[in-house]
Amino acid sequence: MKSSRTLAMVCAAIIVLAAIFAINGCTRRTTKPTTTTTVTKPTSTKHKRKIVFVMKLIGIPYTNVCEEGMKKAAKELGIEAEFLGPSTGGDTIQQISIIEDQISRGVDAIVISPNDDKAVIPVIQKAMNKGIKVFTWDSDAPKSKRIFYVAAADDIGIGEIVIDRVAKEIGGKGKVALMTGSPNALNLSLHVQGVEKGVKKYPGITLVKPYIYNDDDQQKAIQGAITLLQKNPDLAAFACVNSPGVPGAARALIQTGKDKKIKIWGLSIPSENRDYIKQGIVNGLTIWDPGKLTYVTTKLVNDYLDGKKPRDGMEMAGVGKLKVSPTGVIIMPGLIITKENVDQFNF
């Protein structure tokens, strides 16, 4: 009696499982385009090359633009490419888990923007040992075994440009607040170093300490800026070196009624700041096109997999000449955006 009931139970469980499989099988096909970012071009039935990008964080405008650039290149090349990353800022461990899972999956290449340049060293080593080619872009891990790094701009140079522009705006004297993202991201700490190096040219300027760390979070950027404004009512300008910093500072100034009295220059994308720039709340931006950066990276990685290595001074269509250093750093030319030219950029 009892055993027959158990048997019936097991049968029922198997039927339920089978039903779930069937449903899973169907929904998978229909939902795939919305839940993944796979770009496929139906060419041949043989193994299609697969490149996976692992960002620091996904779902913010900056990284969405990167993803668009990747998709465009993948479509042109007829390869598969995916854009992954943690959904909360600064999550180093989660980023490593994602990379490990891609190693298990056996993709052809992994392109990383590391949250932490040291913590990714073992996982990059592991991937290379398994024959997966690893590259970095957007931010580097110079001590790792990565093949090359595609930089949007000279990381230290960007910091210097930002502080030079700020200095020009405030006439070379006053208190300047420096806003950055996570203190562990190498590209951001190099931007900060650039600002610190550049500020030595202007004895009249003091950088307010401690710096504002917004963890790539707009809300934290606004809060940090407001707190700093309360402590430093005589602030002259904001110098921001990560993308949520500029609009964050702009909103903080609007909320405290100090807009247009305090200057803002920084590294950010035009689409998030277009209105602020036109109204004169944000004085200007220095930026690269993150879409083009990722587009170029996808092409360079694909070329490398085909056996074509990047060369110094090589011409990339629509971007210009690339600088390639012996340490495997590839640098793209950068942009300066102000009220006059902001409408020319649609990212």
Binding site: T38, V52, I58, P86, R105
Partner: peptide, 16 residues
């Protein structure tokens, strides 16, 4: 669950 979604290339924002 995490690993399977990563292998399928599901973005983290959907995973949470």
């Amino acid at each position: 669950l995490r690993n399977g979604l990563n292998l399928r290339g599901v973005p983290n924002t959907w995973q949470v």
